[in-house]
Amino acid sequence: MPDGSYAHPQQRQFNPYTENGGTILAIAGADFTVIAGDTRQSEGYSIQTRYAPKVFRLTDRAVLAVNGFAADGNMFVKKVKQRLEWYRHAHAKDMPLRAIARLIQTMLYAQRFFPYYVYNILGGIEEDGSGAVYSFDPVGSYEREACRAAGAAQSLVQPFLDNQIYFKNQQLPPGQTRPLHLSLSDVLSIVIDSFTSATERHIEVGDGLEIYVVLAKGRGPQGLEAVRGAQELTTNAEGDRVFIVRRELKKD
């Protein structure tokens, strides 16, 4: 309009979401699982902090990595932990991994029409002692997989994992068969390589790396002895065990 006003009422909607960058990843072995995430939190081109954890120990056999909108992520983790505590009070034991996976689906889908804008990867040990990874979309669709990457550098890391874990596009020498499961030391190398590479090529990835290793009950620490600075977080020595390994990533 000539007077500078608008002919139609204008609506600018408040956007309740943002993206806080970062990448997470999890790989399941035969009797272990590795869950990792970088520690950078950013918004746009600004690095907000170089240390904001995205991976959380839920129980001695379950670790949850959360990526996307940090405020939703933190709130979601807080509520999952609360539900697990209530379960402990009611049943005097930790919730099994597959039950946590279904719980997470239910909690995510409950917010179907105002979703938690987060991609979840749950890793740990099943009741049968096998390593497991569950991946979720923001509204709760989920599946069990051998490996999964999510977040800002998913498109860089997932193809690498497809190649290294699932041996996609690899022509094996005649007579050689591919192993069904990789060793822990191989998996740790792949995880660290994934993050150093993602840090090189993606601006939202870097600063620090937190790697959680969950070992099935009775499994020795083979593959972990040589790892520098592995720290045990297990609360009950009888069952599965959780370790954390920290590494620096480039900060530029």
């Binding site: 902090t49 240390y51 909108f69 940090a70 405020a71 709130m75």
Partner: peptide, 8 residues
């Protein structure tokens, strides 16, 4: 305003 938090 989004509830985003961090420490540094």
């Amino acid at each position: 305003l989004l509830g985003t938090t961090y420490s540094a």
